[in-house]
Write a protein that binds this DNA or RNA. Sequence first.
DNA 1: TTAAATAACGGGTACGTACACGTTAATGAA
DNA 2: TTCATTAACGTGTACGTACCCGTTATTTAA
Lengths: 353, 353
Amino acid sequence: MDKKKSSSLSGVKEIARRANVSIATVDRVIHNRKGVSQETKDKINEIIKEIGFQPNILASRLASKKTNRFLVIIPQSAENEYWEACNKGIDRSYAEIKQYGISVDKRFYDLDNKQSFVKLVDSTSIVPYDGVLLAPSFFDEGVRLASRCKENNIPLVFVNSDIPGEDSLSYIGPDLYKSGRQAASLINFGIQKGKVLIVNISKEIDTYHHLLRKEDGFRAYFNDLPSKQPALIKLDIRDTREEIIEKMVDECLQQHPNIEAVFVTNSRVRVIARYFEKQHIDKILVGYDVIKDNVHYLKQGVIDFLIGQKPEEQGYRGLTSLFQHTVIGTNIPKYCFMPIDIITKENVEFYRN
Amino acid sequence: MDKKKSSSLSGVKEIARRANVSIATVDRVIHNRKGVSQETKDKINEIIKEIGFQPNILASRLASKKTNRFLVIIPQSAENEYWEACNKGIDRSYAEIKQYGISVDKRFYDLDNKQSFVKLVDSTSIVPYDGVLLAPSFFDEGVRLASRCKENNIPLVFVNSDIPGEDSLSYIGPDLYKSGRQAASLINFGIQKGKVLIVNISKEIDTYHHLLRKEDGFRAYFNDLPSKQPALIKLDIRDTREEIIEKMVDECLQQHPNIEAVFVTNSRVRVIARYFEKQHIDKILVGYDVIKDNVHYLKQGVIDFLIGQKPEEQGYRGLTSLFQHTVIGTNIPKYCFMPIDIITKENVEFYRN
DNA sequence: TTAAATAACGGGTACGTACACGTTAATGAA
DNA sequence: TTCATTAACGTGTACGTACCCGTTATTTAA
């Protein structure tokens, strides 16, 4: 943690002095531009290694008027707290890195409208950008954008959902499968011997696939269990209107009277919670995402556990990763899985998305 | 998110141009040094507000050869994963801010030896420092250091445990009481009608007090419960030798045969877990801190829940806060409570301290 | 009345790096 | 031989801010 007086003992000037060359030559070597003989190049590189030269990023950024542009493509924040949080994380990152001459262009699409994503992806030129942050809610277009990035050699970071085949710089988001397991483990801890209901609520086919991964993990947990294995009922609701949802859940509960716990695979758990509260139903209820409505029912005791996926941090890390990769030259891990946060009535007040 | 071409439209140069003064005069106003008439001072301040001038921190730091020193006083990392993590967080922060000409001096004390803390505090001069990061494991000396900081007007940040009376810049750490409540809530979710055992293991009286806060929260949760209230047994162990601990727990379990769950108020839960494994005891076990041994027993299924307090982040935030306050001028929140993380077998692999 | 002090300002250099441009010598083409 | 080209460097300025050191006018002390 100690540092030499950074004055004359480090820096390009010192390197130049030791190598008997000018600062400009050292600079050429550092940025491996041409115009330097192999001999001096070797000598300078050796000195660089010897004194452990680390360029002063402040001075570097100040001198090179270089300004990097990043492109961000995520769902709209309006009426969607999850993506609002992600957006906020991006802003927080931006506030920290704008000093370095970074600019960010954000484009938003409608999560309920695949076409808006298609149009956005196809109409946006990625050429002027030094990096792209993408939430690829829809598969095919995500792939298209990814390959365009690859062609142009532009680093690409996925947030929230991954497209495993494409070689992105990094994926930052949840492990859906494991989060499903986690939910199962919590429910298993609380139930006696009743049945367990799994509810998937989604209209778009692509987003529905994400829910399936969670369900897989959920089921896998119980399958791996040596002892008791509760009966698992499944309910698919391909409609997001509350009346429809309530009606279908109602019917299902009629049909299976001894359901003890309900697992909702996304943030729509709030709708089920509202229904439970109205009908004075007291079952174990587990769902996703720390958004206002869900927190309300968590505090009421209607929802027992929420699983958090840190959307704010996903946004923050996404942009920060692009910055660190491009400007600082840091090595970015290919996969950055978010923690699987368990939120209850007792700890929700301290939770940070 | 859009930015004007930051070239000629912002910066001290532009301010100077608009105010018909030299850059030096603008600089005097910005750092409110004397040598400027009230009139021009007002004019310049107005222009600053008008164009929303934000000084370029890169250039500022580069020009002023100012180098800030921070003092860090925390327990030794050796054989203590918790404080090792905190130390690591401090290093991570340092790696980010050293660019700005920050240097950090670390001093370590022995958590099991109050005298080492006393000596350290009394022998260390805080005068040359621009900020102090302190883990005040022992109360009285913490107070002494705090008042010395106050006299010298040096910002002080507490991590891990607070000394509420002293006006520090910030406290960064857990809410012990609420974390106890959280533990209670988890246990309550899993038990049927058996008794619950609370175990405090600590030698030093000061650290023992921290455990009491958790116990208070734990008890409060059950007190607030309208319905079932399990019997709470308490076991104080003022010795850290494993044989002693095992023996006392053994006796206690003999005496109370129908204990269903055990809550250990610190990271020593590993000792109880080891004992449980040996004796093939299968009870709900909840404890603190994501350290190697505890994780082992979590994965074995011996420990059901660990409560995490993010030591790494505490260290990171601690130093970063000092930096932001001193160098950037950011407003630091007086209290920064860590989330109360719930860690299980299923999510531990994604957990970040 | 004169020297000294002070208030209010401007000029200029430095921080560490980037880069445009100038310079020299060697090489190649005509 | 002469001119153009190129490799291999050095010089110097710029980035935006900080701050030392002048300079001028005005006030104060003697």
